[in-house]
């Protein structure tokens, strides 16, 4: 009988040991996940800020582009490059 009881005790010990390991693992896992969530959260926030900044930059660049592409500016640059206003005779549209 005594020989039969010994394995039961060791099984209990093993079970408890496993539970402890799982518990410790769970604690570490939860901490790790929580840490990741916080880290990713900050990263996400940074990226959102960056996105917002880039959208604002894009708006400013579009405004600058529109200023550079305004007809008077293009005409001035064309004249600087030696281009001339086309007279009616400079354009031939064939049928």
């Amino acid at each position: 009988m005594a020989a039969n009881k010994q394995p039961a005790t060791s099984q209990w010990g093993l079970l408890n040991g496993c539970l402890l390991v799982v518990l410790v693992f769970m604690v570490f896992y939860c901490s790790w996940v929580n840490n990741k969530i916080v880290t990713r959260g900050y990263r996400l926030n940074e990226l959102r800020k960056s996105e917002k900044h880039l959208i604002e930059e894009q708006g400013k660049l579009e405004a600058e582009l529109a200023t550079l592409k305004r007809p008077q500016n293009l005409a001035r640059l064309a004249r600087q490059l030696g281009l001339k206003e086309p007279r009616s005779g400079h354009k031939i549209v064939l049928p």
Partner: peptide
């Protein structure tokens, strides 16, 4: 402009200098 020698009728044109 790809116009050959001879008489060319340029219809609907904003032409001739």
């Amino acid at each position: 402009a790809g116009i050959s020698e001879g008489v060319v009728v340029v219809d609907n044109a904003d032409v001739v200098d």
